[in-house]
């Protein structure tokens, strides 16, 4: 299973952040928020200098491209926890852990 994270941050910011933290997964740059808009996750003016950014959201998409778990928080401070995501993904896959 792959993990990818998406934000409006530039490739350069993502590269620096990824190197600093040693992340092994892709940090995808959606600088003009086109994909964030396509997913209806745009939070207008919520970023630095009133920039449009993504609201927090997490999805599990199965191999066929179908969404099997979606977590859309109603409070920016409350995010999906790793164990919550793993539990939801296990359930979506019918108990298989692979």
């Amino acid at each position: 299973m792959h993990v990818a994270v998406i934000s409006v941050d530039s490739v350069e910011i993502n590269r620096g952040h990824s190197q600093k933290m040693g992340f092994a997964f892709p940090l995808l740059s959606d600088a003009d928020a086109a994909v964030i808009r396509r997913y209806d996750l745009l939070h207008r003016g919520a970023g630095p200098k009133n920039a449009d950014i993504a609201r927090p959201a997490e999805f599990y998409v199965d191999a066929s491209g179908t969404v099997r778990w979606a977590n859309l928080t109603e409070n920016i401070a409350v995010r999906a926890r790793p164990e919550q995501a793993l539990h939801a993904i296990d359930a979506a896959k019918g108990g298989r852990r692979d």
Binding site: I6, N14, I36, L41, H43, E58, V61, G65, I89
Partner: peptide
């Protein structure tokens, strides 16, 4: 997205940025 899906799907995490 297609590159991420095989073989077991993908977790997509949208976030506010760094």
């Amino acid at each position: 997205l297609g590159d991420l899906l095989s073989p077991n799907g993908a977790v997509l995490i949208f976030y506010r940025g760094h």
